[in-house]
Amino acid sequence: MFAIFKRELSSYFSSPVGYVVTAAFMAFCGVFFYVQCLYTGTSNMYTVFQSMFFIVLFVIPLITMRLFAEDKKNKTDQALLTSPVNIPAIVFAKYLSALVMLVICLLSYIIDGVVLSFVGSPDWGVIFGNVFAMLLLGSAFIAIGVFISCMTESVIIAAVFSFAVNVLISLIDTIAATVQWGWLQDALNALSFQTKYSNFALGLISLSDVVFFISITALFLFFTDRMIERKRWA
């Protein structure tokens, strides 16, 4: 499993993808930080974290798009599936490599905090809490992206479809507000990623929200495993 994790992680940086994704994430984070903290003269990074929710929607499909789709296209999945490694381990190794990519991107939060400490007094508890929140949110989006990547041979289709699904997820609140039936509204609100992430951004860490994101991650990794297994039997 470690071999796959190592290869996937290094492959991000053997092509422009890893550099572009990291640079884009850090650039957006830097711009939001400058405009919403340094320029306005506040040490409250809440609006920065809120804005980054939408950046993650774009960035994560770029991280996950090639994880399985490229293997299928280049037939390297034959090397993986005929090796003495079971499918859940393959899925988890790929998921973990994408998560580490996200962690690298999230270093920009820490950099922002350090910069803020020169001109003010940042709340490190809130910053680390938001790194944790972004990890949970990112983890769920990554698991969804991994699942979509295993359904196609096309990296582009995987990226576009993941992005569309992420946008749809972000619109759950808007959709919920337009729904007439109360039970459906409640159900949609319960599935809202944005509401749960906003709670974290405000510093409100709730166990149910943590369990929600972990469950979504586990569910989609399980779907990925089943999808690969199903294709072996098809």
């Binding site: 390297t76 999945d77 034959q78 005929t82």
Partner: peptide
Amino acid sequence: GYLPEMPPLYNDM
């Protein structure tokens, strides 16, 4: 040890 019809090679390595 398996050599498929199309060798499973990672082109970037």
